[in-house]
């Protein structure tokens, strides 16, 4: 059957679950819509009050940025850091460990299934935001094409990173403080609170050394036609380098974590 067959089977199961709880699935999307919309409104207001433009962004430019950012953030986020602690504490991991494949595969399919299904709802929302706030953007064709692999790399990089961090649950039960710190860092340094070029100096410096920008800001700016081909190539390289580091890390931490894992009962 192989990995592909496994992915198909897992896709069907997850899709069925989400269809069962479709209202819940929709409601959970809500927070992901409100936050970018709020920042969209805030930054458009600032742009308008300072002569219609802020850096390279007009108020329509902000509309495009935050509408696309909402989609990219949605497509790349994961809830694994919330879930892992429960898995470890309740011994749910035992069942997963019995399977002959690495549990990360099932999580990836779970995540992608939910994303694909909710996109049906989120795409019209993004289109509405762009229409309601007069979004302006005109990307060249190559940038749109280059966006696809950048988005795929962004998803993988973020997923591996968060899966690694989630494994902190093997060592402590108080993961919520760690999780929240991580979410705040991502909020500021991945371009969700403002485009990174607008962050004040010291914050922008921090953002440039952290990996977060490569999974939200980079694909967004790329598809909006804000990057040159050279910047795009450099972005791919940075994504690939961080991805390689994340792959090594996720394997190391998993091995160490599983050794520590003990299930009660079972």
């Amino acid at each position: 059957m192989g990995l592909l067959g496994l992915y198909q089977a897992q896709f069907r199961t997850t899709a069925a679950t989400h269809l069962q709880y479709r209202v819940e699935s929709l409601i959970w999307l809500f927070g992901g819509i409100v936050e970018p919309t709020v920042y969209l409104v805030v930054w458009s207001t600032v742009a308008e009050s300072s002569g219609g433009r802020l850096g390279t962004y007009t108020s329509g430019g902000f509309a495009a940025y935050f509408a696309v950012m909402m989609l990219v953030e949605h497509l790349t986020f994961s809830w694994i850091m919330h879930e892992y602690e429960y898995r470890v504490r309740m011994g749910r991991l035992s069942f997963v460990l019995l399977r002959p494949v690495h549990p990360i595969h099932a999580d990836i399919v779970d995540n992608l299934t939910y994303k694909l299904m909710s996109l049906i709802f989120l795409l019209p929302v993004a289109a509405f935001l762009m229409w309601a706030f007069h979004a302006e953007f005109a990307p060249p064709l190559w940038a749109v094409l280059a966006f696809v692999p950048a988005l795929a790399l962004a998803f993988l990089l973020r997923f591996l990173m968060e899966w690694t961090l989630a494994m902190a649950a093997f060592w402590t039960t108080r993961v919520s403080a760690l999780n929240q710190t991580y979410y705040v860092a991502v909020l500021f340094f991945s371009g969700q609170i403002a485009p990174l070029s607008l962050l004040p100096g010291p914050l922008a410096d921090i953002a440039s050394v952290l990996p977060f920008r490569w999974f939200v800001s980079f694909p967004v700016e790329l598809v909006l036609g804000r990057l040159t081909p050279a910047e795009t190539a450099a972005g791919y390289l940075a994504q690939a380098a961080w991805l390689a580091a994340a792959l090594v890390l996720v394997r190391r931490v998993w091995r160490a974590g599983v050794k520590r894992y003990t299930a009660v009962g079972g």
């Binding site: 805030v42 207001t45 600032v46 009050s49 300072s50 500021f188 607008l198």
Partner: peptide, 19 residues
């Protein structure tokens, strides 16, 4: 609190009044 204040600080580094 830090998140909220940070957001305000970023916004007010560009303007002295919001709406």
């Amino acid at each position: 609190l830090g998140t909220a204040l940070g957001g305000l600080a970023v916004v007010f580094s560009y303007t002295d009044n919001l709406g």
